[in-house]
Write a protein that binds this DNA or RNA. Structure first.
Lengths: 207, 207
DNA sequence: GCAAGTAACCTACTCGTAGTAACCTACTGA
DNA sequence: TCAGTAGGTTACTACGAGTAGGTTACTTGC
């Protein structure tokens, strides 16, 4: 069957961990700039300077590769926001700093953000366990911040609030893309104006 | 080249408009149950009882077909919410009724909702003009509701609030899928508790 | 009633890309 | 020095989006 075999001759061999990180970086780049569908595995492999089957060896499938990228990006985002909120001095400022860090993340890590904003472009089930775990962490982290402001509130409502706030953030981040004049500071200020009042004082009940 | 040609013999011919609606219905079904990627044009065509090229004749591409489905679903959603809000008697109730209608939509139109919740699964640019137009309408409609509660507020902030609230709704609707015990009424109550306070009285400013 | 025109529809392809089988080679350590 | 293995390859298959080019059935003017 005449199989040629000179291709890898001059190339550098890397350890699994090294390659994994290198691939993730390049894949994030390609996914971010072309979108999930249009990004071809062959293309990614070529940019890495490797052949396609290696990508499958490392990540199992195209979806698996995307998932790994998303996971890394999400973790980064979570780290940014929680780090920023670490030195807050009041519950209110805690939330404020977290929001601000979130909006700044989009500007400081354009590539990761481009990936995350299209997250749902992942094809089949987004019920990936690993990813869901990080999502839970986000919600948990947000709930924790809220608990400072609303100590008497039941957990269920806290979680609902957390989901709502995360959703609001995501959508506002998207909105900001069409309105470059809206700075992270302004966006944060708007959001604080919307949800701030309910956090200072008892949340009222409408039934 | 021996081209066969008995396939359409017993089938009904339909006018363009008729077929279009029929195709949209079935495509929505297939997209909703399998997701965008996994849905095959051949499969949709077969269920319609038509051959694939006709789908391309009518909608240009797979993405075009999805877009048409989304458009219809979004219009339905907008109609539901605006109809529900029509008989409200106070600004507060206006918002309440709109939110409630939104959450109920997910239960009453499961199929359309399944489509909308995966909206971003549309591959390339989601900058489709038609779709963007409907999105603007949603934001506009929400802004209008808010304007009743916050007559003195500048338009920019109203739009920001609208985007944030829509985002919060979407995310809470997703959250509800993992928590079937949360009724539309409860979800609405949570959201009203979160954003209600800032709508009654002057929105404060954090700087 | 019968062309001529057109709207609706078909079969049979091409082509790109995800994923796989089967094989190779450089480095490691006993 | 050579067995074992981690890292790598080429050359496929499978499948689905999109297309070229032809056919059937309905409509309309004469």
């Amino acid at each position: 069957m005449e199989i040629g075999q000179r291709a890898g001759s001059g190339r550098k061999r890397m350890s699994r961990a090294e390659r994994e990180q290198q691939i993730l970086g390049i894949a994030e780049e390609v996914f971010a700039e072309r979108g999930y569908q249009a990004a071809a595995m062959d293309d990614i492999a070529q940019r890495v300077g490797l052949s396609k089957p290696m990508l499958y060896e490392y990540f199992g499938s195209k979806e698996g590769l995307l998932l790994a990228c998303l996971e890394r990006a999400k973790r980064e985002l979570l780290e940014c926001t929680s780090a920023a909120a670490a030195h807050a001095e009041s519950p209110e400022q805690l939330l404020h700093d977290g929001l601000l860090a979130f909006f700044r993340f989009g500007e400081d890590h354009k590539q990761s953000w481009a990936l995350l904003r299209n997250e749902s472009a992942v094809p089949g089930m987004e019920l990936d366990t690993e990813l869901e775990g990080i999502r839970r962490q986000q919600v948990g982290f947000t709930s924790d911040m809220l608990r400072m402001s609303l100590p008497e509130t039941d957990e269920y409502r806290l979680e609902a609030f957390a989901e709502a706030i995360i959703g609001a953030c995501e959508r506002m981040a998207l909105w900001r893309e069409n309105h470059p004049e809206v700075t992270p500071e302004t966006a944060t200020e708007h959001l604080m104006a919307l949800i701030g009042p309910s956090l200072s004082g008892e949340a009222r009940s409408f039934s």
